[in-house]
Simulated assay, not measured.
Amino acid sequence: MSEDKSLCMVEAINLALHRAMQDDPDVVVLGEDVAGNGGVFRATVGLHERFGFRRVMDTPLAETLIAGISVGMAAQGLKPVAEIQFMGFIYAGMEQLISHASRLRSRTRSRLSCPMVVRTPHGAGIHAPEHHGESTEALFAHIPGLRVVIPSSPRRAYGLLLAAIADPDPVIFLEPTRLYRSVQQRVRDDGKALPLDSCFTLREGQDLTLISWGAALKETLEAAALLAEQGVDAEVIDVACLKPLDSQTLIASVSKTGHCVIVHEAARSYGPGAEIAALLQEHAWQALRAPILRVTGLDCVIPYARQELAYLPDVQSICQAARAVMNGEQL
């Protein structure tokens, strides 16, 4: 029987990759430095030694090639898990992801599917250079045929990655860089996948719904605890899968509380929060007792280290928005 181990997120991802490759010989891993060096964040450490060069492959520094090869592998029966070193480098591969991976099932009338996963570090907060802290999940959530998954803890990273690898269609798996080694959690290597397309309720509440995902959940949960001290009972929802969206869980929560704040570090304009707010306005409007507010990143390129924290939503801004919603005010 497997035992629980205290793991950080990057270790939980590594564990899930080991489990998936052990259980399914069709799973292969590819990307820049994933074999010899174990990946830039060491998420693939030990895979090459255990499974060999035919299943763990270093590629050239060419994201278009990585995405294109993965589509070809997936179309011919393999289950590639491709690593893009940082989300800011994924744009070169978008032609393959949008024009081919997402369309392969519809193009062939389901004769072919595309069971591939693209893993990439996601989000700001580690004082990295330009292109190393992107939060552009809305680009992929807009594309029909792509799933977009963002874990927020080691345990969910393990279960959601197993589910993504087993999924018959392409999944963009965004791993919050800020959480890679900052949080430890007990994880059991039992091979059990968590459900895709589902939100997770991290905290029950009656007065207010706080909706977030990825690294921003850290500040969201801290804000909920602070609000509780001030007499506001906040429910916290981890979206986890941005596309397809678990609308039922979100609608049920807001229908209960009547108040909602959405938190994300992606830029505000046309961000995922706007889509969620529109969904709730359409389906839970009778329960809403105040306008839905968003606490988001700014409409600018994520700044360098000195100003990076000023870009990210913080506990104070979340609490400020929550108090405004509870008082029926605008920010």
Rank of each mutant, 00 (worst) to 15 (best):
A284S: 04
I276Q: 01
D167W: 09
L331G: 12
G159K: 00
H100Y: 13
V236G: 13
A163V: 02
Y158M: 00
D197Q: 06
A240Q: 11
V117M: 04
L162R: 00
R107W: 07
G123R: 08
P291K: 00
G36K: 14
F140K: 01
A20V: 00
S247M: 08
V171F: 02
A92G: 15
S113D: 12
P144R: 05
S212D: 13
P121D: 09
M94A: 09
I276Y: 00
W213Y: 15
M87W: 11
L174Q: 11
V27W: 03
H48T: 04
I302D: 10
T220D: 11
L331N: 10
A141T: 08
V261G: 12
A141L: 00
D197M: 05
D314M: 06
A290H: 01
L61Q: 04
Q286C: 10
Q85P: 09
S99M: 13
G205C: 03
L65K: 04
M87N: 15
Q330K: 13
L312N: 12
Q286E: 14
P60L: 03
I98S: 04
L17E: 02
L104Q: 05
G123Q: 10
G31C: 06
R188I: 00
G258Y: 03
A128F: 08
D169F: 05
S269G: 02
L15M: 14
V56G: 01
G258W: 04
G68C: 08
R119C: 06
L196A: 02
M116K: 07
I211T: 05
I165F: 06
A287M: 08
R186A: 15
P195N: 00
A62T: 07
G159V: 03
D246K: 05
V148G: 06
Q206Y: 06
M326T: 01
Q184I: 11
R289L: 06
V10G: 07
P195H: 01
L174F: 10
L30E: 08
I84A: 07
P195I: 01
T209L: 08
K192F: 06
S70R: 10
R155M: 14
A193V: 03
A101F: 03
V45T: 14
D189L: 02
P244N: 03
E11L: 05
P195Q: 00
Q316D: 15
E95L: 15
S70L: 04
A274V: 11
R323Q: 14
F53E: 14
I143K: 02
Q248A: 11
V28D: 02
Q320S: 12
P244C: 07
